[in-house]
Amino acid sequence: MGVLTAFMRGVTRLNEVIGRGIALIVFAMFAFLIMEVAFRYLFNSPTVWTNELTQMLFGIYAVMSGGYIMAHRGHVNVDLLHSHLSPRGQAILDILTSVVFFIFTLALLYFGYDMASESIASWETSYSAWNPPIWPVKAAIPLGTGLLVLQGIVKLLEDIAVAFNLSYYTPETQEDEKGEAL
């Protein structure tokens, strides 16, 4: 197994593990909101922290999903042209359009990192009544984007392999087909 293959499997595996973990945050969001309703309605004592914590968790949940969804081909596209092309044609097309993908994600990575490091430098808090640290949520932007970029590189390597018939990747190992019933 070459370096490239190992890299590709490693990244996909990493996104898989992280994604399956982050997916469980939905239970926490549910629990905190129900708690808030109970505290406020039953005991007339709303908390200062439940809604804000839920929102912070949601931010992390949303932004960390990019790479995992990419690995599962879950970012929805228009397949009008794709469906008329051979796998090789599709791969070549995807290599070309990946430029736009990388422009977006790298810009986001750069400025997300900038934003997060500024926030970490001052251990930024939200200054709400609860006033929790929010730098971890901001840090999730470059982290989540980074995972997406990595998975995008994997996708690009796959497409290159398919387009030029290179041996480090065989499409059979790929996750089912596109539009997999999620």
Binding site: M29, T54, V63, F104, L108, F111, M115, I141
Partner: peptide, 22 residues
């Protein structure tokens, strides 16, 4: 481009969107 990351941060902070996953 800072606006792009700033908009994403704003979206993450939007409480009403929490209804989507639920």
């Amino acid at each position: 481009f800072y606006m792009v990351s700033s908009q994403i941060w704003g979206t993450m902070e939007s409480f009403t969107l929490v209804a989507i996953p639920l």
